[in-house]
Design a protein around this nucleic acid. Structure first.
Lengths: 191, 191
DNA sequence: TACTTTGTTCATTTTTTCTTGAACAAAGTA
DNA sequence: TACTTTGTTCAAGAAAAAATGAACAAAGTA
């Protein structure tokens, strides 16, 4: 197990110079995680750098630490705020916006589900209904039965997905199954 | 609500000619669904065409119905079999392989989790441990405390993700929370 | 063995997605 | 108002992912 490599040469994040090794490795985790749900690496990097930071960061600090373009940072922050994964922190002394990472996994997941998952479920609902119409109208009698069976299956799947969402949030929030405090976000006061 | 368009012109699947309208619309659902988890559209199409079919399909039937290349079908089937989403069906009379779609959502999800999700969780585990080492070795004392706090957060997140997986499978399988029969796959005998 | 049928692999092309950076807007300052 | 600072937008370029199809393997047949 050779995990004692000297510098941030683990293979994928190399342009980053202003970050310490543990930060670089942590970013890698986030980059992978967001990749898993189809988000661009820059989004993982931005969340990651905020996650690691000891305090709020400005727009410029983010671009500098990551060495990526202002455009990417702007878009990435926009998405992350929309997801509720990053928040604006008001700092009286400064004109600049200051950003912090949301540290509650429950809220992170809730934002993601609400923004990316629910819409799919809902449009799926509409599509299934459209398919049922098509079947009634256009499918020959001999196949109608089979087609209806399949769509019925789709409906059941949808129902179950729907029931899944609250359960996921409950588990991540530390409900019942787990024995831990609800949301854990120790430090960082909101002003 | 104008969902009464005449033909398969919903915008994204147009090369397909050998499919009826309800099949085309159903494929669209699967294409979206696989896209959501980062799989290529061809995979969704292949699963979808098998899902809609009244019986097992051969390799050639799949390429013909979808109008996509043999290479894509080969790779797509390979992945789908690996995920347990598609199975080979032995047919005595024919030399060709015959494929059918797995219709149990529980098994579908289990395959996906096992193949795509678990590995990420496990490699994440290793990464976190590496990060802890980096922090002990290289982070200045003043920041060490903060860094440790963050990694502790990562650990908690990981634990919760782990606990999540069995719960998901239970819900999809129709356990407790739901009042339905376990796996529903009515038709299609296995020879 | 020579031939056919069935399916896979992989280098290339195509398509899609992401990033960049210059132009632009918004809002504060002097 | 003119100037600066801060952040956004979006067309163009770069990078990544997916699809293609020809070459190849594997296994059955005559």
């Amino acid at each position: 197990m050779n995990m004692a490599e000297p510098n941030q040469s683990t293979g994928s994040i190399d342009r980053i110079s202003e970050l310490s090794d543990w930060e670089t490795s942590t970013l890698e985790i986030f980059v992978r995680a967001v990749g898993l749900v189809g988000l661009p690496r820059s989004v993982g990097e931005i969340y990651g750098v905020l996650f690691c930071a000891t305090g709020p960061l400005t727009f410029d600090e983010i671009t500098e630490r990551l060495g990526i373009s202002r455009g990417s940072v702007s878009q990435g922050l926009k998405l992350l705020r929309q997801l509720g994964a990053v928040k604006l922190q008001y700092i009286p002394s400064s004109r600049k916006d200051h950003y912090i990472a949301e540290l509650s996994i429950k809220r992170l997941m809730r934002g993601f589900v609400k923004d990316q998952f629910k819409p799919h479920l809902e449009s799926g609902q509409a599509r299934i209904e459209a398919i049922e119409q098509l079947i009634d109208q256009e499918v020959s009698d001999s196949e109608k039965n089979h087609a209806r069976k399949r769509v019925a299956t789709l409906r059941v799947w949808q129902q179950r997905m729907r029931k899944l969402m609250p359960v996921i949030l409950a588990v991540l929030g530390g409900a019942s199954v787990l024995m831990e405090s609800d949301d854990q976000e120790s430090d960082r006061q909101v002003i």
